[in-house]
Design a protein around this nucleic acid. Structure first.
Length: 579
RNA sequence: CGGGGAGUAGCUCAGUUUGGCCAGAGCGCUGCGUUCGGGACGCAGAGGUCGCAGGUUCAAAUCCUGUCUCCCCGACCA
């Protein structure tokens, strides 16, 4: 391609609404433009990179035995109602009504559609296993789209769904995808970590998340230094803290007047105590039941862990009315004393159970209680009392006695063992060799195509611009003709360009009638891995210059050897990515 | 949805406090000339319903009301 004919609108000024490096550079290098909040146009350079990522993903999926299909982005809402996810997904699900009044959703993922396909077409164990995938636009009405393409409302995802006859088969399918993902991310030039992940609203029995560590990531991964444990924050388990003992006998509970002081912070200031001495009592609701949740003042509830503690049901904070009804007090003054009888379950974080004494709400507006002793003043055992781990890990907590460390990252892929959640609800059943009807065991596997692009830029950039891994760079080689108006120079550049083209190299020729400085700045900004510089200076000596974007070194090469040398460099860069 | 901020030229922004001067600057764009290996310079030019709708006023980018959009922080989220 010729630069002079391409739409590559680079900009000097840093865009006002971009925060992170990848977002800024994608705009500056002319890869994307925003259309509306969370929706982006991919311009020629950006789209070329996405296509290369897609090609890598497709290649690896096909090699892993999966088959590509395409399903509609528009799904009838009934499918989502049948699995209950229409409600569970809540407002993140884009919905619309057509002229006949039929309600549809824009697919944020496609378990329902793939499973209903399997329900119709797969009837026998002889057809299993099967793994189907698509690469297509997905839609999520994010609460807050941000960081450009890292969290957008429309994005491209590769989603695969495996169907197996038994658990061993599922394990194999899962492993095949897991291994394919490792190859995909390696070939895309990413460094990544694999962590245990929570299954969330997906449902199922196990999951791994592929995350690219970088400062600007939205995900937090939790790991031990020795590498024996790694999980994402939603999942990360913590040890119960050692039981605290007090030497002295704790005096009886005592009400304290705390007018209009409801927040942990305010109460601590007022009572001159610390958040870790407080017990927060939160009222949660499932569909029809109310649960009291006790957690230490300095901890936060991990709703995924909480969801598991109540048997995997959807759970959310109760509304104000319910809280006031249960506690008999305004929001901010809930406490554990005497509440066990008023709720269906009382779930106590094990850090609370380990406390010797604490401060709690009094279930009385404007009052708190001092000298509360777990076990003495509220029950630690009983039919409806559960003591477990329901909080988010904090840096410095331990798991299996080892200190937990945190790292930020961008999630680029996740694999799930779904089991029979969807196949049962949507009737994806088959007859086994004994003629017995069984639901398929499913797995699902997602790759965020756009996020790979963003993550690669987060990892590969300097103050001058992007530094692409060659596998997903919009072009492999840039031939910069420094003096386009000099016939001799232009001819040399053109010759090298043609030879590279003929050899199948993905090459861009900067043939614009511009000053050298502008071309060099653009070259660094768009970050093509190999640059061949053709200018009067060196052509006079019969040479051109070859430079890698990632390295400062410039080497002079005779004109006639330039193309071959360039091809060698391209091949060695590809080799490093195991291509 | 709660809190904060912003909408003025293609882009980045000034002007709004205290209504009145022709609605401005830099970058980008067009033409001409000089320049030409790290975002050159000079001259000439094009480009704006000041987010939108009402209102107040002799007069509104500026004041008032409503509304839309975008960004940041938070809760939520594969």
């Amino acid at each position: 391609m010729r630069y002079s004919r391409m739409l590559i609108p680079t900009v000097k000024e840093v865009p006002a609404d971009a925060e992170v490096a990848s977002h800024k550079l994608m705009i500056r290098a002319g890869l994307i433009r925003k259309v509306a909040s969370g929706t982006y146009i991919y311009l020629p350079l950006g789209w070329r990179s996405l296509l290369k990522i897609i090609a890598i993903v497709r290649d690896q999926m096909d090699k892993a035995g999966a088959q590509e299909i395409l399903v509609p982005a528009m799904h009838p809402v009934e499918l989502w109602d049948r699995t209950g996810r229409s409600a569970d997904y809540g407002q993140t699900l884009f919905r619309f009504t057509d002229r006949h009044g039929r309600e549809s959703v824009l697919g944020p993922t496609a378990e329902e559609v793939f499973t209903s396909l399997a329900a119709g077409e797969i009837n026998s164990y002889r057809q299993l296993p099967v793994n189907l995938y698509q690469i297509s636009a997905k839609f999520r009405d994010e609460f807050r789209p941000r960081f450009g393409p890292i969290r957008s409302r429309e994005f491209i995802m590769k989603d695969a769904y495996s169907f197996d006859a038994g658990p061993e088969g599922l394990d194999q399918s899962y492993k095949a995808m897991y291994d394919a993902y490792c190859r995909i991310f390696t070939r895309c030039g990413l460094t990544y970590v694999i962590v245990e992940a929570e299954v969330g609203e997906m449902g199922g029995s196990g999951s791994h998340q592929f995350t690219v560590p970088c400062e600007t990531g939205e995900d937090t991964i939790v790991y031990t230094e020795d590498g024996s444990y790694a999980a994402n924050l939603e999942r990360a388990a913590v040890d119960p803290p050692p039981e605290q003992k007090t030497n002295a006998e704790v005096p009886p509970m005592q009400d304290v007047h705390t007018p209009n002081i409801g927040s942990i912070e305010a109460v601590c200031k007022f009572l001159k105590t610390k958040p870790e001495q407080m017990v927060k009592t939160l009222i949660y609701s499932t569909k029809d039941k109310v649960t009291a949740v006790l957690i230490r003042g300095d901890h936060d509830v991990n709703e995924e862990k909480l969801r598991l503690a109540v048997g995997g049901k959807h759970i959310e904070l109760s509304d104000e009315q319910t809280i006031e009804k249960v506690t008999g007090a305004k929001v901010g003054f809930a406490g554990p004393i005497g509440i066990a009888d008023k709720v269906s379950k009382m779930i106590i974080d094990h850090a609370v159970a380990a406390m010797a004494v604490g401060v709690t709400g009094a279930n009385k507006t404007d009052y708190h209680i001092k000298n509360v002793v777990p076990g003495r003043d509220f029950p630690l055992e009983g039919e409806n009392v559960i003591i477990t781990d329901i909080r988010f890990a904090l840096e410095g907590d331990t798991y299996n006695g080892k200190k937990l460390l945190f790292k930020k990252g961008i999630e680029v892929g996740q694999v799930f063992k779904l089991g029979t959640k969807y196949s049962e609800k949507l009737g994806a059943k088959f007859l086994d060799e004994n003629g017995a009807e069984k639901p398929c065991l499913m797995g699902c596997y997602g790759v965020g195509i756009n996020r790979i692009l963003a993550a690669a830029i987060e990892l590969g950039n300097d103050k001058n611009g992007i530094i692409w891994p060659i596998s997903i760079a919009p072009f492999e080689v840039l031939v910069t003709c420094v003096n386009q108006d000099d016939e001799e120079v232009a001819k040399v550049a053109e010759g090298i360009y043609q030879r590279l083209l003929d050899s199948g190299v993905d090459v861009l020729l900067d043939d614009r009638l511009l000053r050298g400085g502008v071309k060099f700045k653009d070259a660094d900004l768009i970050g093509i891995p190999v640059r061949v510089t053709v200018g009067r200076k060196s052509v006079a000596d019969g040479n051109v210059e070859i430079k890698l974007r990632a390295e400062p070194k410039i080497q002079k090469v005779p004109i006639e050897k330039a193309a071959d040398k360039t091809i060698d460099l391209v091949n060695s860069l590809k080799e490093k990515l195991k291509l």
